[in-house]
């Protein structure tokens, strides 16, 4: 497993190192792929404006809220095996048992996951992915990278995104139409995620002083928060006196 992680991480690093060769800006030392990232950010923003957001808004206007909630619940339920695998790989057995219980309850009483019955029974859901697992294992994030269509990421999370495919049961099933199901699910999930974040993304854009930096910062903070399961690690907080003039 570790060898596979290392290989994937190395491949991704090499691919980006080649594509971003000579793009490091001295003004953005914490963002070595700045030029590449800014270009992809502009592309993603245009794609969002022309395709993704209009589709998400149409979906919001046509499908009533209970329907949208059902789709989101079902997609979340289908993700349970990946979450369970990562719960276990992180040694979080309590959370793993909750994921398993939720999957069992929602797949049956929740009619293939359309209704989140488990939440009403007091078993709240959570997310985990291989990017978070790698972080828990002590692997550093690597440079921030903006992926076409997929959006903000870093080397660790991109590696995790690929490795999560290995935890997905559909990967190992062989039947006609499997690829169409996988592609359709990816597309519906994208629209569903964009729809639920219509307000948040608009708020982020309205509030931001520098939209690119705002997204990068929000992504990094939210990922750190997800890795720590919402707990504040006080040692990771910056010092407020760091840039005081020396007296």
């Amino acid at each position: 497993m570790m060898r596979m992680v290392f290989r994937t991480f190395t491949l991704i690093s090499a691919a980006f190192a080649a594509s971003a060769c000579g793009t490091t800006s001295s003004a953005h030392q914490d963002d070595p792929l700045y030029v590449w990232n800014k270009g992809v950010f502009a592309f993603n923003k245009a794609a969002d404006k022309v395709v993704v957001e209009p589709v998400a808004r149409t979906y919001h206007n046509i499908v009533p809220k209970p329907g949208r909630d059902g789709v989101r619940n079902a997609l979340g339920n289908l993700r349970s095996p990946v979450i369970l695998g990562n719960d276990l790989l992180q040694g979080k057995f309590g959370r793993a048992s909750k994921t398993l219980a939720r999957f069992g309850i929602n797949s049956t009483f929740g009619i293939v996951g359309l209704f989140d019955v488990a939440k009403r029974a007091g078993i709240k859901g959570h997310t985990e992915d291989m990017g978070q697992t790698l972080a828990v294992w002590g692997i550093s994030s690597g440079p921030y990278v903006m992926l076409p269509i997929l959006g903000p990421s870093n080397f660790r999370d991109t590696t995790g995104f690929i490795l999560d495919i290995g935890l997905e049961p559909l990967t190992y099933m062989r039947f006609n139409g499997r690829n169409a199901i996988l592609t359709g699910r990816f597309g519906v999930n994208g629209v569903s995620v964009r729809e639920v974040n219509l307000d948040t993304i608009e708020a982020l854009r309205n509030a931001s002083i520098d939209e690119y930096a705002s997204l990068k910062s929000a992504y990094e903070q939210l990922r750190a928060n997800a890795i720590s399961d919402g707990k504040v690690n006080i040692d990771d907080l910056p010092d407020y006196d760091e840039y005081e003039d020396e007296k």
Binding site: S208, A213, A218
Partner: peptide, 27 residues
């Protein structure tokens, strides 16, 4: 000094944006 809501520290968020603006204008 700072408030974290929905997982985001606001002053830290502002610092990342403001320093980016300054960096893009030669400091």
């Amino acid at each position: 000094l700072d408030v974290q809501i929905f997982g985001i520290w606001l002053a830290l968020q502002q610092r990342n944006e403001i320093t980016s603006v300054i960096a893009n204008h030669g400091g």
